[in-house]
């Protein structure tokens, strides 16, 4: 039978089997050996990649596996506990937690209070955990007004806990210098009648200290925008409710 693998036969001339078999059969065996070696390499590669893929999945879940290993091994590997866990201990802990929750609840004012969100310009009039009313407001614009003579003002609303210190009906605003400078007007003398404005603050005003007021406005279209000089402006509906519900000493929280 004529060989179709002359090179292989040539290479395996020293093989023992050569003396016993015809070259064709030998060539066949060698061909199988080489094919086998090639396929073995392929198998090893696929095994390696399968292994790597599986290892990847193990690493992907490593946080959960590791946490579980720690949970299981910690009782054996670390020092003994002072307080053993039992249903009794757990009940005691539950009671303690309830007690802490009750103590925490006592911090919420019993009388109506106001929460002002300057980030979204929104107010919440609340009593305990219940919301009595919510609506828009306007807070400080964060404008820094610079004028001649190195004079400057920043129009921001302070954050924190405040108390109602004064309640006014038909308030009159004594306009400070910046109110004129901001409008490009000439600043009048301190005792000038131009300084007094009886309409700008609306029907009511509530003072929270340091010159900051919660009051009404003539410019209702700007309610909901941060455009004030630090005070809180409310629309008529909200102003009436706030004035009616908040007593002297009632809390105002601004954030």
């Amino acid at each position: 039978m004529p060989s179709i693998y002359p090179r292989i036969i040539e290479n395996s001339a020293n093989d023992d089997n050569m003396n016993r078999h015809d070259p064709g059969e030998m060539a066949n065996i060698m061909f199988h050996k080489q094919t086998q070696s090639r396929s073995t390499k392929g198998i090893y590669f696929s095994a390696f990649f399968t292994g790597i893929t599986l290892a990847y999945f193990i690493f992907a879940n490593a946080p959960s596996i590791g946490a579980y290993v720690i949970r299981v091994s910690a009782p054996y590997l670390t020092k003994s506990a002072e307080e053993p866990s039992s249903s009794k201990t757990n009940d005691l802990l539950t009671r303690k937690i309830q007690n802490l929750k009750n103590r925490h609840q006592k911090y919420t004012p019993k009388i109506p209070y106001l929460i002002i969100n300057t980030s979204d310009n929104h107010i919440y009039l609340k009593k305990g955990p219940r919301v009595i009313h919510e609506g828009p407001c306007s807070s400080g614009s964060y404008v820094v007004l610079k004028a001649d003579g190195n004079r400057e003002w920043i129009f921001s609303t302070p954050r924190g806990a405040f108390k109602i210190q004064m309640k006014l009906k038909e308030p009159v605003w004594y306009m400070p210098d910046w109110a004129f400078i901001e409008e490009g007007r000439e600043v009048p003398p301190a005792n000038s009648p131009q300084r007094y404005n009886s309409k700008a603050l609306g029907k009511y005003a509530l003072s929270i200290g340091s010159g900051y007021l919660i009051h009404g406005t003539l410019y209702t279209r700007l309610i909901g925008q941060p455009v004030t000089h630090g005070c809180i402006r409310l629309a008529n509906e909200e102003l009436n409710l706030v004035y009616r519900h908040l007593r002297y000493g009632a809390k105002v929280y601004i954030y």
Binding site: R71, P75, S80, A81, E82, P84, S85
Partner: peptide
């Protein structure tokens, strides 16, 4: 309190 109860029997 220790967060892990260290009694392995529990």
């Amino acid at each position: 309190h220790s967060p892990v109860n260290l009694d392995p029997q529990t």
